[in-house]
Amino acid sequence: MKVERRVISVIVQNEHSVLSRITGLFAARGYNIETLTVAPIPESGMSRLTIETRGNVRVIEQIIKQLHKLIPTYKVIEHEEMIEKEMVMMKFPINESLSNIQALCEAYNGGIANVSSQHIITMIADEPKRVRHFIEAAQRFHPIEIVRGGVVAMERE
């Protein structure tokens, strides 16, 4: 069976150790987590997790069912068509071209976040595929550090 990438959003009750229930489930059943982001949903007592995972159709189906089965899980959202974004921060040495770096970042919905005497820090936010392109393209400016934020997603409709 073909292994595919899937982004799943999970709405959970914001309670003690709920995150470890989710990650524990992935670990115990041998599922993959490529990226994971978590944050509370304002004024709801709920949190939203976005999990980027891989597996064949049967595995993806089991992941969704097993997530549903967890008692604090309110909703599992999985769609072929999700609007996905990922944020990336990158640190460059100060001797690299500030204007070239800025131009590159702007092409990927970002810009310069901070400039110190030593470093240039940039941030971008774009679709996961474009994020990969950005990281590739940025290599020529000799980045010192890359921080990826993990995918967040929202249903299109």
Binding site: S17, S20, R21, G24, A28
Partner: peptide, 16 residues
């Protein structure tokens, strides 16, 4: 204890 029982119970609680 709840860390250990998480994977072998339907659900568990640590009472606060």
């Amino acid at each position: 204890a709840t860390g250990i029982s998480r994977s072998c119970t339907k659900h568990n609680f640590l009472v606060r």
